[in-house]
Computed example of a mutant assay.
Amino acid sequence: MKVPSQFIVVDDDSVNNLVCRYTIASFAPAARIQLFTNPGKALASIETEFGDEAEDLNATLFLDINMPEINGWEFLDAFSLFPEKLRAQINIIILSSSIDPEDLRNAENHPLVRGYYSKPLSKETLHQIYNVNNERA
C-alpha cells in the first residue's frame, strides 16, 4: 500500500488521537491529519470531502472499535453505504485495544478493513502497513 497524503483517525479517546497525530506526523510530515472523537462527524466530513467526483483523494483511516455513540462496526456499516468511488479512496485500518478474538475475526473477514493493529499507533506499525524499510525512517 502506498503511503497516503491524508490520514483520518476516528477514536473517542482524545489522548490516543494526539498520539496518532504525533506518530503519523513523524512518519509522513507532509500528510494532512484529521482527528475525530465523534464517529458521526467523521462520516459527515468524509462524505463531504471525498464525495466530489472530480477529485481523486487517497487516505488511510484508523478506526477504533469500542466507541460509545457509534462503534467501529456500525461506522463500517454506514461507510459501506457510500458510493464505490468514495469508498475506494479510503483504506480503513482497525486500531484498537480490544483483545476480543471475535473482533479480530470480524476485521479479517470485513471487506472494507485492510488490517487490524493494537493501540497505540507506532512508527513500526506504520512501516509494517506501508512496507517501508525501517532504515529509511
Rank of each mutant, 00 (worst) to 15 (best):
F75H: 06
T37S: 12
A54T: 14
F50S: 01
L63W: 01
S80H: 05
Q6M: 11
W73A: 13
N91C: 10
D11R: 04
N17I: 04
A107T: 08
L76K: 02
A137Y: 02
T48W: 04
I46N: 06
N58Q: 10
Q6I: 02
R87Y: 04
I99W: 03
V113S: 13
I70Q: 06
I70H: 01
H127T: 05
S97N: 13
F75S: 02
H110D: 04
A107E: 12
I8F: 01
P4E: 11
I70F: 01
N134A: 15
L95I: 10
A107R: 07
D13E: 04
K2I: 12
N58R: 13
R136H: 09
L81V: 02
D13N: 06
Y116N: 12
N109L: 15
N131H: 14
E47S: 13
N109H: 10
N109W: 00
I8N: 04
I129D: 05
R21E: 12
T48R: 14
E69P: 02
W73N: 11
D100F: 00
F79E: 07
N16D: 08
P29I: 08
A30F: 11
E102K: 15
W73H: 12
A78D: 05
V9S: 14
M1C: 06
G40E: 13
I94Q: 08
S98C: 13
R21P: 00
Q6H: 09
A31I: 12
K119C: 03
A54C: 07
T60M: 01
R136E: 12
N131E: 13
R136I: 07
T23I: 07
R136W: 08
S122R: 12
D103H: 06
S98W: 13
S96G: 09
I94W: 06
V10W: 03
T37Y: 01
N106V: 03
S96L: 10
V113L: 12
G40S: 08
V15S: 12
H127A: 14
I99M: 07
I94V: 15
I33W: 00
P83G: 10
I99P: 00
L43C: 05
P83R: 14
D13F: 01
F82H: 11
S14R: 10
A28S: 07
L43A: 09
N16Q: 11
Q128Y: 14
T48C: 10
P101R: 10
P83D: 14
E108N: 15
F7R: 00
P39K: 07
V9I: 15
I92A: 11
L18D: 09
N17M: 03
D103L: 10
N106A: 14
N91L: 10
E74W: 03
F82R: 09
Y116R: 10
D56T: 09
N66T: 08
P111A: 11
I8M: 05
E84P: 05
N91S: 13
V3Y: 08
G51C: 06
R32Y: 09
I24P: 05
N66C: 11
A137H: 00
L43Q: 05
H110L: 02
